[in-house]
Design a protein around this nucleic acid. Structure first.
Lengths: 304, 304
DNA sequence: CACGATATGAAAGATATTTTCGCTTCGGTG
DNA sequence: CACCGAAGCGAAAATATCTTTCATATCGTG
């Protein structure tokens, strides 16, 4: 068995920097930012139009940081430099200007009436979906789909809330005739990961990007030559180290009443759906009959 | 000695240069432009996005002119310099980009590019959320929340894709200190339902409203005096017969590639979240510490 | 409290933009 | 037809802006 090691760890190599996904990206990457960078990111996300009018030096002064920090932030957000961030900012500003009013989210309070809770939750989850869609790297997604579609065997890892997402992916893949297993028991996951080899695929779900119980089996799968996919909210987290393809899920603000698990689940499930549809497309000949077959099988279990 | 004068163009004194009116401005000012400037203006009006990516030098070369001419053109168009023209160009490009609607009303086709799949799925799920929120009966929801918050014991039923939703609800309820069990095995579900009595709550998830494996335990729970809640897409289906409270989930159109399970899951999960937040609000005193406690317990399982 | 790792900004270095300035062209004029 | 002046134009200098480097400051950790 050859020891696989990932060489480049910093360049996300995302194709073109996303235009509208900026706010989402800021939120997604915020945790991995330093204090100074967060100040810059905050300013940028808060007032795109205003910041677009500033030079590096200007923005540095405004945020009480240095030019270097501004450039670093721009890089982290996926642009080659400040100049390009600025262009994107101008674009964003123009969109907001012409488009609809920017989204403002209110937190859910303890004494909110139930109707408000429904409205706010629905809104937040819609936002999460939009952010996720905007932030998804379609190249990575396509690569993951290709790998899945041709896999001999697929393992899916996830614990806690992500275990359900893993199950969901497994169910869907099974339904179109692929061989998939979802593991939520870390020990069994590792035990099974050892069986994987080239041509197989391992998918790990972890919002934090640092869930040891999920990283471990992914690492084993990676080192055994399987194609590995990480679905995480922290594309720069430890899990990415062992992932051939990283799919980024969006992070919504969480509050006391709304744990992160809630929006991360929504986000992860969208990714699952995308993977599923993508694979179904690629394997259409085989998937179509399988889909209707499983539907038929269910019919008789329904009363009438 | 010849008196040399700094080459300046009159400021139109218009406050900010218009963003979208650029094409018009080019046409208006074309007659007063020199040949070289016209070439530049033409390029700019013809391909804003492309030009926004170019530096002065680049645009000068592209148009076969010089940097100076490019700057002069920018001035004539009302911008202080090329830099600002470039920003406006980026904004214009972004507007045009977002302007054309991606025809999201269509179904997902087998040959849709992956980017379209993402957009359509996200859009559909957003739609599902909106529909669900709009169609949810807050009175029923409130009643269900009240029942859950005061329950001695909670059973949750769901099979197939709904099993995951049931699990999700269980996980959330457990996290705030309630006693909940999710059953996906119909036999065990019935066996356990027998244990329920007044003050207990049973929740059933079934999109079709006619899944026998889920209706049966709910019926048993109902007959044993438990408060029963049905989350279904068919509020008039068989399951409603044994439900004290019916929460309606939305049904999106399904197609060959997009099974109903997909949108029903999204819809059901929103209901779960609403129930969860509702209960957390009612039991805030107990829930708040429980929430942070479970968060703490998880922390050490994360690397770093 | 020492240590290594990371974060940060000042200033040097590289690019991009703006200005300067002379060359060229062209139309009119003596 | 030679001459002149005005306007167009671009090469290159001057300036502004962006990027990189590097030394210092800071933080968490053992």
């Amino acid at each position: 068995m050859t020891q696989r090691v990932k060489e480049t760890f910093e360049k996300p190599s995302g194709p073109p920097p996303a235009p509208a996904a900026l706010a989402a990206k800021v939120r997604t990457l915020a945790p991995s930012m330093t204090r100074s960078m967060q100040r810059v990111a905050e300013a940028v996300a808060g007032d795109p139009a205003g910041c677009a009018a500033l030079t590096v030096t200007g923005l540095a002064e405004l945020t009480g940081t240095s030019e270097a920090t501004v450039v670093r932030t721009a890089r982290l957000l996926g642009y080659p430099g400040y100049r390009d961030l600025r262009l994107a900012l101008a674009g964003l500003a123009a969109q907001q200007q012409s488009g609809r009013a920017p989204a403002l989210t209110t937190d859910i309070a303890v004494d909110d009436p139930i109707a408000d809770v429904v409205a706010k939750l629905a809104y937040d989850e819609q936002q999460t979906l939009a952010d996720t869609a905007a932030g998804l790297d379609t190249a990575q997604l396509g690569a993951a789909v290709t790998a899945l579609a041709g896999a001999r065997r697929i393992d899916v890892y996830g614990v806690g809330a992500s275990a359900l997402v893993a199950q969901d992916l497994m169910q869907k893949l099974l339904r179109i005739g692929l061989i998939a297993h979802a593991h939520s028991d870390p020990h069994l996951a590792v035990t099974n990961a050892v069986q994987l080899r080239g041509g197989d695929v391992a998918v790990a779900f972890t919002h934090s990007g640092s869930t040891g119980d999920v990283i471990e089996p992914l690492r084993v799968a990676f080192e055994h030559g399987a194609t590995t996919v990480a679905v995480t909210g922290r594309p720069d987290g430890p899990v990415a180290q062992y992932a051939d393809h990283v799919l980024t899920t969006s992070t919504a603000r969480e509050s006391e009443l709304r744990p992160a698990a809630m929006s991360s689940r929504t986000s992860q499930l969208l990714v699952v759906d995308c993977l599923f549809i993508g694979v179904a497309q690629r394997t259409y000949e085989a998937a179509a009959p399988a889909l209707s077959a499983s539907y038929e099988a269910l019919a008789h279990r329904h009363r009438r």
